[in-house]
Structures are given as C-alpha cells and as structure tokens.
C-alpha cells in the first residue's frame, strides 16, 4: 500500500494521491453495486413485497386495497383446490426427484470408468438439458398421447393396454415426472461425476484391498464421501420441483385445461394454482400473493426437512 501510494504520488502529486485513495476505497463497492441494486429491485423487493400484498384485498382492476390481515390465508387454507395442488406437487416432486437422482448416481459412477470418447458420452447425457421446458413438455405430451402416442403404441404391442395418461391422477403425475427426470438426470450425473472425481484415490485403494465390489464401493465409499453434493442436488431439485409449471400446463394443452391441470385438476401444481388466481382470472393479486408466500414457506420447510433427513443418514451410517 505504501509503496503503491508512493508510486502514484510521484506522478500525480497530492490530488493524484487523493484520487488513488478514493479509487482504492470506493471501487470495490462500485463494482458490486450493480448486482446488489438490480437484484434488490427486481428480485428481493418483489419477493418481500409479496408478503405485504398478501394481507390485502388487492386486485389489478381496483384502486382500493383493503387490509384484511390473514383473510387471504384463511380462504386459501380452506380451499380444497389448494390442498389438491399441494398434494399433486409433492407427488410429482417425489416421482421426479428420487428415481432421477438415483439414476444420476449410477450414471456418474459409470462415467468415472476409463471410457473411450469421454466427452461424447458426457455431451450425450447433457443433451436433454439443452431443450427448453416448453419443448420437453410439448414433445412428451405427444409421446404420452392417448390415441396416437408412441408410448401407448409400445405398451399395446407389448400386450399391456393403452393408458389415458392425462385422465388419471397417478398416470399424469408419472408422465410429468418423466419429463422432469428426462431433462435433469444427465445434468445431475455430471455434478455427481465432478464430486466423485475429487474423492481421494487412496480411499478406493483401501476398499479394493478389502475386497469391496464396484457397487459396494459406490454405496459405502463414494456416496458418503460426496454427501455435501448430494444434499446440494436434493435441495436444488426440491426448489425446482416445487415450482413446476410449464410441464403440467402444456401437458394439459396450454389452454384452460392446462391452467387447471386437467378437467378435474388431477395434475394442477401450486404454481399453476398461483397462475390461475393471479393472471388467469381476475388478477386476484392479494390472494395469489398469499399462495406465493405459502409456497415460499413450503419450499423452506421441505428444503430444511431434506437437509435434516440427509444429516440423519450421515449420523446413522
């Protein structure tokens, strides 16, 4: 600092020194300011303000915003459609996440081997992730079609009957879960692969000497070693899964049937429910905000539960 100050001092005199000091002190804050300001305005403020709006009878169409306390929440919690949406979301979340992360682990394990054309396989796995959720939803809606879908045709030729995927609660959840899993399995496999490559080789040497098979090594050596990464992917997948929107909406055909998640709301998720009240009919901003804030609470709760659950596994093993 002193040397550097001298360096500039000789050039610019006292004003140069002042400018140098100012530059040194203020620059860092100036450089991080754009992020914090823009994030505050377009990210944090709207999220926080949601809580405020949720305590009002607030609609886009009227200028009056009457304070009604927890009124919106009371309506929400007594609406069976809300509980339906919550149940659907949880069901899709579990169906999509558990098999997906499990498959990702196995694939990552496979990728740690001495493969030829390593990059090629990795890129193949990431390919689905490139397609947008809209594209994924549209393509799979075609594949899962009742009358002309390829999947039903395969089922039929295997001797199983045709399934009306959209009509049932369980079947529609499976179809939506497949869309999510297809897009994200390879992505998570790459994250696990990165984690696995960082596990010290000595650990495997020891396991190998003890006669552990490859599979035993995966579950007794690798999984405990990469636990932080697993926690991370579980939480990120949960946050994503609880906000699923495009897949069910487009699976339902995009129109009103999509917004309600099927004729009997068999696959309406929480975000669809929010969208229905906030933007699809009457712009009930107050009520929709209560939905959003409740979802926020659910996300925090589920993420926390996941975290605690996985910690328990650690202490148990």
């Amino acid at each position: 600092m002193t040397i550097a100050a001298k360096g500039t001092g000789t050039r610019g005199g006292p004003t140069g020194l002042l400018r140098y000091r100012l530059d040194l002190k203020a620059s860092p804050y100036l450089y991080i300011a754009p992020f914090f300001v823009l994030f505050a305005v377009f990210g944090l403020f709207p999220l926080a303000f949601t809580a405020w709006v949720s305590t009002h009878e607030w609609s886009l169409l009227s200028d009056e915003h009457a304070f009604i306390g927890l009124g919106n929440y009371e309506t929400l919690l007594s609406d069976p459609y809300f509980w339906n949406a919550l149940g659907n979301t949880m069901s899709i979340l579990v169906l999509a996440t558990v098999p997906q992360l499990f498959a990702a682990l196995l694939l990552a394990h496979l990728l740690t081997m001495r493969l030829r054309a390593q990059t090629f396989w990795r890129m193949g796995m990431l390919l689905p992730n490139v397609a947008s959720v809209v594209a994924v939803a549209v393509i799979f809606s075609q594949l899962f079609g009742r009358d002309f879908g390829l999947i039903n045709w395969v089922l039929e030729s295997l001797g199983a009957g045709r399934i009306d995927w959209q009509a049932g609660s369980a079947t529609s959840h499976v179809a939506i879960a497949v869309m999510v899993a297809w897009k994200w399995t390879g992505y998570n496999a790459l994250i696990y692969l990165a984690a696995m490559q960082a596990v010290p080789r000595e650990v495997y040497e020891a396991a190998h000497l003890d006669g552990a098979s490859r599979m035993q090594q995966l579950f007794h050596v690798t999984v405990p070693m990469i636990r932080p990464t697993i926690v991370f992917t579980v939480i990120v997948s949960t946050i994503y899964g609880l906000q699923i929107f495009a897949e069910p909406q487009l699976f339902g055909g995009g129109g009103q049937n999509g917004v309600t998640g099927g004729a009997s709301r068999q696959f309406q998720t929480l975000t669809l429910y929010l969208y229905e009240h906030g933007f699809n009919r009457g712009f009930e901003f107050g009520y929709a905000s209560a939905v959003a804030w409740t979802m926020f609470a659910v996300i925090v709760l589920v993420a926390l539960l996941n975290y605690l659950f996985i910690r328990r596994i650690r202490s148990a093993s």
Binding site: F39, L60, I239, Q243, T271, A292
Partner: peptide, 18 residues
C-alpha cells in the same frame, strides 16, 4: 440469494412493470 426462489415474487414484479 442463489437459493431464493425469486420466481415467487412475480406478483409485485408484475405490478412494478405496470
């Protein structure tokens, strides 16, 4: 903030855009 589901702020964000 990487973990914050900002998507849930859509209602005030929409009001801001209005």
């Amino acid at each position: 903030t990487m973990m914050v589901p900002v998507q849930l702020g859509v209602i005030p964000l929409f009001m801001l855009m209005v």
